[in-house]
Design a protein around this nucleic acid. Structure first.
Lengths: 333, 333
DNA sequence: CTGTCAATTGAAATCGGTTTCACAATATTG
DNA sequence: CAATATTGTGAAACCGATTTCAATTGACAG
């Protein structure tokens, strides 16, 4: 039913080996033979079956990117970066969502074992250090956006600590000294690193750290609301809030407005990520921009470099951020 | 280097055929042989190479979903629906972004020809009717969210016309009679159908259609701003605006606020989709909810049904919507 | 004790490609 | 002109699984 390389060979009057050589430019073929083959291919509408090819070559030129959720627009630019880098290097990127489930993640990683894909990139993972290290010793994998403490594998992130440090320094420069932070209690190194940056900025400016100025929830929208309620319930509420993500920042802003505050005047709010939302929001949300496109490009380039050189590098690359000033942060009065 | 079925067979003291039978439960195997095989599999850490299996079976149990852009959170729930339905039926969903490029789309669809995937779902496409029909006659494909006029293939969408009709009827019920619409000039049947709904609702209520009350741009955020400027420049500006998407609605709202309008009082704005943003925005945006999860489930279930029955149905399924009332729409005064 | 049948089993074919290897034909060199 | 190198080619092995087919075994009926 389906036209195979054999049919092409027969139609062109050559052997399958010659057809394969034409297909892959892998060896010299006489001009006349090549022409016959190309004509036959065109006439029969042949396209090679990748399963056969890949089975023999033991490679698929596909990289699987596993994202925790497709709900986050944040991943969008990263994926675009990945796709562009991959396509330049002859690879395709396929995506799948783990919904932050360890089981789904493992099922997807099975595609590595099954040789359906050549490598995998995890944008956030539920797996532990040991599992990751084992995986990394057998396959090509990389982490992107979220590092895992102690795991020795290729990891590309933004400079989380630096970004938070500069964001909080910016708030301080704007005159704020009572600065709250909305973080998470989930097991996430980016949260942890951003908290570190927050603390360092306070410390460097002689502002004592206060445990009640830090609210820990999840990444869910609702936790911005809760954080705001928590802060405003304090005897001495903060005048500025640094949030671990733009979603949480937007949530804090929304709650503040609905409580009658003027955001950027009565209270300042700073986010992290610079997703589309923070630009679209009213007021625009001051935030720390991640170099998403570059993060995506970098992780794919490094990974393919590893594949091509049979290396298993454990580089940890952190890329530079940029503070984006909008209306949600104002001078302290 | 890699452990294959042969290694397992040798270790278990049986033939590869028997190992295969154990692996697939495809035929009776004696209890002792099965045990030997299972022990060998465990001991060697064997997992079958899908390329070999799939080559022989001519199937991969993978469905490719091609989305125009990963930027739209809108697709998120649809994809979750797809994944759940697929996993229940023994399939996996892989995603890829076409970035609305015809060429990328075709390159991805090559995975169908190459037998890397069993079927493809297009969430919006740049392909024309003929290409789609040709494709559909050779492979299992489906459209999701965006129908293509004249193309005869499995298509699952929300009831676009009905949703728009009811949304505009809602605005009319709130007392509005000067109702603008933000649509697109791009080749999109969902835009077209929603425009039809808008016109029908006007007609049914004896409100004459005015060409200057319809603004056509793209899906880009910026076009909400431009639409608002256009409407407010009219001698008789609308008191309510129905937008083809929540992104555009948010953009109109943002611009209106920055111009000093009170949204929900001075002007009402209604969106379409019910993405997370419309809930997070201040004010919350009234919108038409799409049954995203069900759309995803349905298209996958129908597609797999087709695969299993060797059918090539050309059903066009449109699922029910729901009006979500929030603060961005108020009574006309 | 022989014949029949069902349950197990392995050898070999198969899926659709790529690659090795041997060989013939031609080109180059001293 | 002989010796050697280069080019072009097809037969066959191979990748790792599934599946067909025929053979072996043991149980059971007559």
């Amino acid at each position: 039913m389906n036209v195979t390389i054999k049919d092409v060979a027969k139609a062109a009057g050559v052997s399958v080996a010659t057809v394969s050589r034409v297909l892959n430019n892998s060896a010299a073929v006489s001009a006349s033979a090549a022409e016959n083959v190309n004509n036959a291919i065109k006439k029969l509408g042949y396209s090679p079956n990748f399963l056969g090819r890949n089975l023999r070559k033991c490679e698929t030129n596909i990289i699987l990117a596993i994202i925790p959720s497709t709900e986050q627009t944040f991943y969008s630019e990263i994926i675009r970066g990945m796709q562009n880098a991959a396509s330049e290097l002859g690879y395709d990127i396929l995506l799948s969502a783990s919904n932050s489930s360890r089981d789904v993640e493992m099922r997807l990683l099975n595609m590595l074992f099954n040789r359906i894909v050549d490598a995998a990139i995890l944008l956030g993972t539920q797996l532990d250090v040991k599992t990751l290290d084992d995986l990394n010793s057998q396959h090509y994998i990389a982490l992107c956006c979220e590092r895992v403490e102690g795991a020795e594998l290729l990891t590309v992130t933004v400079d989380d600590e630096g970004g938070a440090f500069d964001a909080v320094k910016h708030l301080i420069k704007m005159g704020h000294r009572k600065i709250g932070m909305v973080s998470t209690s989930v097991n996430s190194m980016s949260s942890h690193d951003r908290e570190q940056g927050y603390r360092k900025a306070l410390e460097e400016n002689g502002i004592p750290f206060r445990e009640d100025y830090i609210y820990r929830g999840t990444y869910d929208f609702i936790h911005g609301v809760k954080a705001f309620e928590h802060f405003m319930g304090l005897p001495e509420p903060p005048s500025a809030v640094f949030c671990i993500s733009d979603i949480l920042a937007a949530s804090v802003v929304k709650k503040a407005i609905s409580e009658g505050y003027s955001v950027g005047k009565d209270i300042s709010v700073c986010g992290f990520d610079n997703i589309l939302l923070s630009h679209m929001y009213t007021p625009g949300i001051t935030t720390v921009e991640q170099p998403c496109y570059d993060i995506g490009r970098t992780v794919v380039e490094e990974l393919i470099h590893n594949i091509n050189h049979g290396e298993r590098s454990n580089k940890a690359i952190s890329l530079p951020y940029k503070i984006i000033e909008r209306e949600s942060v104002g001078r302290y009065k």
